[in-house]
Design a protein around this nucleic acid. Sequence first.
DNA 1: ATCTTTTGGTTGACACGTCAACCAAAATTT
DNA 2: AAATTTTGGTTGACGTGTCAACCAAAAGAT
Lengths: 156, 156
Amino acid sequence: MNKKMISEEEMQIWHMWKSSYKRIFGRVVKDMFEKTGLSEGDFGILDRLDLFGKGKLRQQELADSMDWTKSRLSHHLTRMEKRGLVLREPIKTERGVQVITTSAGKSALEDARPVVSMAIREYFLDLLTEQDIESITTLAERTKAKSSSACNTPPS
Amino acid sequence: MNKKMISEEEMQIWHMWKSSYKRIFGRVVKDMFEKTGLSEGDFGILDRLDLFGKGKLRQQELADSMDWTKSRLSHHLTRMEKRGLVLREPIKTERGVQVITTSAGKSALEDARPVVSMAIREYFLDLLTEQDIESITTLAERTKAKSSSACNTPPS
DNA sequence: ATCTTTTGGTTGACACGTCAACCAAAATTT
DNA sequence: AAATTTTGGTTGACGTGTCAACCAAAAGAT
């Protein structure tokens, strides 16, 4: 319960962290977009359709795997459908919609994979020391932990 | 010039890094928005108007200090003006526009400062080890450096 | 003095996200 | 069986960002 405002230096850490992220992430995304026409969302969707579903997946499944709301995914798919990357098809046997990668979608994904890979290496991995990697890994644990421990009201 | 695709583990580092950022940043921004009604952009603008300009600044100056395009700032100010947080006023002596914090803007800023401070501490600083801080600091240097050294074509 | 470029700013179109409202088909309750 | 809740998905409004086109005032060039 530390009520003191954070210091100038602490604020600097925050700013450095934010701007590093934005620079690196921006470079990767921009590279991918310029070279393949895919956004991060597009890539994530096509990637999961390929890996988890061999080209098709139920919409809700897809949303869960990306940690997206159904609304967000619905909007995004509408745009991707318009561009011919995926199509939606009602499921006969049960409720729900199948999302299917088109051939254009498949080839866009195949084009993008190496580009993304190279960009992540160049703009991110190449900048990291062993220590950085350790930091990233452990911080990720700690952030995940934080989600489940917002215990103002302890479990009954 | 490493042409090999990155490994599964390397991709994991990337994903961990992204999701840590998104979680932490999301928490801070959400907290601020829920408690004060200000977005990150709003806060940045009001903060700079206060620190650099004692309540007023030329639009382009402001844009530069935030590393925003003039277009982005123009759009954002239009929205903030509608909400009564700032106002724009042509400069008589020279070309350009003064951005001025309204009293509503000032008080929103004063309300937000401690909230932001606390959120950054709780969701970010409290999670960091000394090592993490060192990593963040040095990585920031390295990312900044990378910007100026995209030398496929060396300077003439 | 006129022509050109730079500077400061706006605007419209569109991608991306969130939120809340809505809808219909299951699945459960009662 | 009828009423209720949950689930899967869409939609519209609006905040946020980018890009390109536009505009006018200022500064420089010829």
